[in-house]
């Protein structure tokens, strides 16, 4: 398959992630959409790594994976913390900065 096919699939998955962030109001699903976007970029990295015949793209996937893990840990801790104080995790109702 040509490189463009993989990049198109990657673009479509990225867009699905963007739409998820735009239309959903449950922060857990917004997080999952962000994971979708990260994975779409990972797919394009691996495809480019394969077609450029270089291992560098896979390095970046490895680093993105680590950043995603750190992001999920902090984000889910934030959501649990918000749920603990407000007993509600609707993003539209998170409009107060103080806890």
């Amino acid at each position: 398959m040509p490189l463009t096919a993989y990049l198109i699939v990657s673009a479509v998955i990225f867009t699905i992630g963007v739409i998820g962030v735009l239309i959903r109001r449950n922060p857990l699903i917004i997080f999952m959409s962000i994971e979708l976007m990260l994975n779409a970029v990972n797919l394009s990295f691996v495809a480019l790594s394969h077609f450029l015949d270089s291992v560098d793209g896979q390095m970046f996937v490895f680093l993105v994976l680590t950043v995603a893990a750190a992001e999920v840990v902090v984000g889910l801790a934030l959501i649990v913390s918000i749920f603990r104080t407000r007993h509600n995790i609707d993003v539209d109702e998170m409009n107060v900065l103080r806890g």
Binding site: L28, F31, M32, E35, N39, N42, V46, S49, H50, Q58, V61, F62, L65, A68, A69, V72, V73, L76
Partner: peptide, 20 residues
């Protein structure tokens, strides 16, 4: 990309999604 595929299953589909 064998290594990335295995890491994807172990870390992403395994560890991160369990946390989710």
């Amino acid at each position: 990309a064998m290594f990335i595929a295995v890491v994807q299953i172990l870390i992403y589909a395994g560890a991160i999604m369990v946390l989710f």
